[in-house]
């Protein structure tokens, strides 16, 4: 078993967000896998704290946009404005041009704005008035949405949920964790310094891509995918893209676990976060984790 390359980062974030080690590791995994993260929970559960702690500890630029129904795509991407002093148009980049974008309450924005964001997430660049502007590297969107049905929201459709590598929900902290939170034992966000450089994150992402997958492991993933597509399976069938995402996340997880190869344990660890929002057809928090648990239990993981 090798060393865990991100142990200090995990420890630091766990010092800020108390009592949520597995969610923190999943969030870091998502970042290392180069995917985007959707955090779904009630207000006040620490979504923003997690997002900001992630950005700070990895030393990434951080922008926060609170989505509202009147937010326009240009408010995100930026726009061309006329520079009077030079007598020419000039591109004024929007908040999207950052390394970590916290998109708060994404389901409050109009579908049009959601689309603009998701397009940028998929392509890694933004086109304004026919000119293409590349987004910075690494680029990661951490979006939050309120799980409860509230007025004036447009839930993300299935196809767009697919753009998020993982969906997490934080849940209530344990009694002990909440006790120390109330006792003020958690670290403040501002006390969290950059533990890594952006280049190091890119390097980790490259390493994660090279983690070894034996044919036996691929078999296991294939069995999971097949099980989701069989007659009587719980939830929507998993797409090939879901399979790729699952493997990508499992690779990053195994890297964080300090191994050079992926085992079924890695797949199981990320499965709920990667697969549940693709399985439940966009019904937020419907019987949390139920579909993915059923699927996992239907496939033999000791092989």
């Amino acid at each position: 078993m090798g060393s865990r390359p991100l142990a200090t980062v995990l420890a630091a974030i766990n010092g800020v967000l108390l009592g949520k080690p597995s969610q923190v590791q999943l969030a870091v995994t998502c970042l290392v896998a180069g995917g985007h993260l959707l955090i779904e929970d009630l207000p006040g559960m620490g979504k923003t704290t997690l997002a900001e702690a992630l950005a700070r500890s990895f030393g990434l630029d951080f922008q926060r946009v609170h989505f509202t129904s009147d937010l326009l795509p240009a408010d995100l991407t930026g726009l061309r404005i006329f520079d009077q002093s030079r007598g020419a148009f000039r591109f004024e980049p929007g908040p999207l041009f950052t390394q970590v974008l916290l998109a708060d309450e994404i389901n409050r924005a109009s579908p049009r704005t959601q689309s603009a964001l998701l397009e940028a997430m998929a392509a890694g660049r933004v086109s304004v008035d026919g000119v293409t502007h590349p987004l910075p590297q690494p680029f990661c969107v951490i979006a939050t949405q309120n799980g409860l049905d509230q007025g004036g929201t447009s839930a993300l459709p299935e196809s767009q949920l697919d753009r998020f590598l993982m969906r997490l929900s934080l849940g209530f902290p344990s009694r002990e964790a909440e006790a120390s939170l109330l006792a003020g034992q958690g670290l403040g966000l501002e006390q969290l310094g950059a533990l890594l450089q952006p280049a190091e994150l890119l390097d980790l992402q490259r390493q994660a891509n090279q983690q070894h997958c034996e044919p036996a492991l691929i078999d296991y993933v294939l069995d999971l995918l097949t099980a989701s597509r069989g007659a009587g399976a719980a939830g929507s069938p998993l797409s090939p893209r879901a399979g790729l995402a699952l493997l990508q996340a499992a690779r990053a997880w195994s890297l964080i676990e300090g191994r050079r190869y992926v085992t079924p344990a890695d797949v199981i660890a990320v499965f709920a976060a990667v697969a549940e929002h693709r399985l439940d057809g966009g019904h937020p928090l419907a019987e949390a984790g139920g579909h993915s648990r059923q699927l996992l239990e239907s496939v033999d993981a000791i092989r």
């Binding site: 085992t263 344990a265 199981i268 996992l296 239990e297 239907s298 496939v299 993981a301 000791i302």
Partner: peptide, 9 residues
């Protein structure tokens, strides 16, 4: 082993 449990668990 329970259903879906991997060896490590």
């Amino acid at each position: 082993p329970r259903g879906g449990e991997d060896l490590e668990a």
